[in-house]
Amino acid sequence: MNNASPFLETETASRVTVTFAGAPLDLPLGANLAAALLTAGVGAFRQTPVSGAPRGPFCMMGACFDCLVEIDGVARQACMTEVTAGLQIDRPHEGDHDAG
């Protein structure tokens, strides 16, 4: 994870702690998750299931599905998700499925 973010944040909002791929991050509460992760220095959100190539947000409007992350075991578009306290975010489908 690159913490020298290529993105500049101009708003100040109260922050909450989430985890991304197991690492804690402080993100603005209620922010667009994709924007918040980018600003926190996360560039690659996932690896493609086809070639393993890294991908990050592309369209920011829910059309391209490149910003997919996993929340509660479900692949979600980060750009269509709001930051809430305690959110556990993973790269999609990297862990094993529970045999449940």
């Binding site: 993105f7 500049l8 708003e11 991908r55 369209c59």
Partner: peptide
């Protein structure tokens, strides 16, 4: 498809909704 490549519209959305700007 590389991370860091986005649409200009995405840049607009980052700015409008989140007040986020690309530095370089």
């Amino acid at each position: 498809t590389l991370p860091g490549v986005m649409t200009a519209g995405a840049g607009q959305i980052l700015l409008k909704q989140s007040g986020v700007l690309a530095r370089r």
